[in-house]
Amino acid sequence: MSDLLIQLRGVTKLYGSGQAELLALKGIDLDIRAGEFVAIMGPSGSGKSTAMNILGCLDTPSAGQYLFKGAHVEVLSRDQRARLRRRFLGFVFQGFNLLARTSAQENVELPLLYRGDSAGVRRAAAAKALQAVGLGGWEHHTPAELSGGQQQRVAIARAIVTAPAVVLADEPTGNLDTQRSHEIMGLLMALNQEQGITVLMVTHEPDMAAYARRMVHFVDGRIASDVPNLYPTNSAPDAALPAEIL
């Protein structure tokens, strides 16, 4: 439970140059162990999204080191980072980002397609992932036929279908109402507790952050506080049986 999964050392991120220069991250040190559930909070412009992009290997730091499982990420090429993402990372976005006019099944299969898995393997894994997010039987519905909460569940299934080490969720409840938000949080918490998937979540809703067991606050490109959440919200309302399905 205490393997060091992610280490950030003096990470800075500089955008633009000259007059328009903006130092979004001003030297971040952050350690994340496997199996943690971390909420990253902070006002807009605090650098939390930048940090998330770097943690998700979508962006590279301007200076400093990023070690993922002890390997340096900051020196990797674009394609090497893509390979790292497809192997170890899962993404959940605020806007779901499902392919339109494409069934839930096919949406979930997408990351497996890039791994080169055969159709049979893809189908089985996608069905299992959809089952895990409580959408068994909804395989052939397209996003337009699903509610927002269900769409986000499909997106979570897509993130976990590759059995990643880390799921990065960027405002996963930002587009959902309170009840659906709590369902999604319950689902993320369950994935974290039952499958041991490390979850990094950016949110600005304290209610949602309360599910995490560690809260990291960003202010002005620095980590202002990094505290454990001793009493995480634990009562996910009907996480396994979402109300909208009933």
Binding site: L58, D79, A82, R83, R86, F91, R115, R158
Partner: peptide, 10 residues
């Protein structure tokens, strides 16, 4: 963007 994020190569 999604395809690239989930690990599609260039």
């Amino acid at each position: 963007g999604l395809r690239l994020a989930i690990g599609a190569l260039e």
